[in-house]
C-alpha cells in the first residue's frame, strides 16, 4: 500500500468511501464507512487514518459525492458523475452506459472515450429508483438488505407495485402483506419497479452498449438480472462497484 500516490474521497448519503491509487492507476487501498452526521470530522479522521496506514506522507485528495465540499484539505471537488465515469472507464476499460444506483439518487451516465461524460440523467426528486427504496422495503419486510436480491430471484411471480413513491410503496407493501401475499413475490415486484425507472432513464440518454452497473446496489443479483433482461443486453459490474466514484476521484488527481 506504500505506493499509493493519490486519494479519492466519495462522501455519499449512505457511505463514505476513501480510495488510494498507485501511479499506474491501480486501486490499492480503500475504506468504507457509513456516513456520519458530522462529515467534516469523519473525513478528517478517515484521511488521517489512511495517511497513517499509507506511510504518513501527504497525498493529494480529490473529493466527490454530495458531501464533497465538506472534506477538509481536499485539493479539488469534482462531481460524482465525472468521477463515476472516469472510475468505471478505468475499471472496465471501455466506453458504455453506466447505471449508478446510489443511496440518495440514481444516475445513468453515457461514458465516452477516456472516461469522459457524454450524457447523463439523474433521479433526484425522491427516493424512488434509489438504494434507499430497497433499504426501506427490506426493513419493512425484515429481510437483510444483502439478501433481498436472492429472495427476489427465488420466485417467478412478480407482484406489481404501482406506487412510484417510496413512502406510498411501503404502504402498498403493508397492504399486500395483509392480503397474504408472499414476501418473495413482493420483493420481485419491487425490483422490477425499480428497474423500470432506471430503464426509463437509460432510454433518455441515447445509451450505448455495453451497460455497466455501479453503486452498492450493483451487488444485488436480482437488480442486475432484471436490468439486463429489460435492456436486452448483458450488464457488467466492476469488481468494486461501490468504489467507482472514489476511484475516479483518485484518478482525476493526475488530470486537469
Amino acid at each position: 500500500m506504500a505506493n499509493v500516490v493519490a486519494l479519492g474521497f466519495d462522501i455519499g448519503s449512505s457511505t463514505a468511501k476513501l480510495v488510494g491509487v498507485t501511479a499506474d492507476g491501480k486501486l490499492a487501498f480503500h475504506r468504507i464507512e457509513p456516513t456520519e452526521p458530522r462529515i467534516e470530522d469523519q473525513a478528517t479522521r478517515m484521511l488521517a487514518e489512511a495517511r497513517a496506514a499509507l506511510g504518513g506522507g501527504a497525498l493529494p485528495v480529490v473529493a466527490t459525492g454530495y458531501g464533497r465540499k465538506l472534506i477538509p484539505g481536499a485539493d479539488r471537488a469534482v462531481t460524482e458523475i465525472t468521477c463515476h465515469a472516469r472510475g468505471v472507464w478505468e475499471a472496465m476499460g471501455t466506453p458504455g452506459t453506466l447505471v449508478d444506483v446510489g443511496g440518495q439518487d440514481s444516475k445513468v451516465i453515457v461514458v465516452g472515450a477516456e472516461g469522459r461524460v457524454a450524457n447523463f440523467a439523474m433521479n433526484d426528486k425522491c427516493a424512488a429508483g434509489t438504494g434507499r427504496f430497497l433499504e426501506v422495503t427490506a426493513a419493512r419486510l425484515r429481510i437483510p438488505i444483502d439478501e433481498i436480491g436472492a429472495v427476489s430471484l427465488s420466485t417467478k411471480k412478480s407482484v406489481p407495485i404501482s406506487s412510484t413513491c417510496t413512502v406510498f410503496a411501503e404502504s402498498e407493501i403493508i397492504s399486500l402483506l395483509a392480503h397474504g401475499e408472499h414476501v418473495e413475490n413482493i420483493l420481485h415486484g419491487l425490483h422490477r419497479s425499480l428497474v423500470s425507472r432506471l430503464v426509463a432513464m437509460v432510454r433518455g440518454v441515447q445509451p450505448r452498449a455495453p451497460y455497466m452497473l455501479s453503486g452498492g446496489v450493483a451487488r444485488n443479483g436480482a437488480l442486475r438480472a432484471f436490468l439486463a433482461e429489460s435492456l436486452g443486453s448483458e450488464v457488467l459490474v466492476p469488481a468494486e462497484p461501490q468504489l467507482m466514484g472514489a476511484y475516479g476521484a483518485a484518478l482525476l488527481v493526475r488530470q486537469g
Binding site: V78, T79, I81, T82, R116, V117, L252, Q255, G256
Partner: peptide
Amino acid sequence: AGAFSDAVKLW
C-alpha cells in the same frame, strides 16, 4: 453544470 465544468477543465 458541475459535470460540464469538470469536462472543460479536465478535457
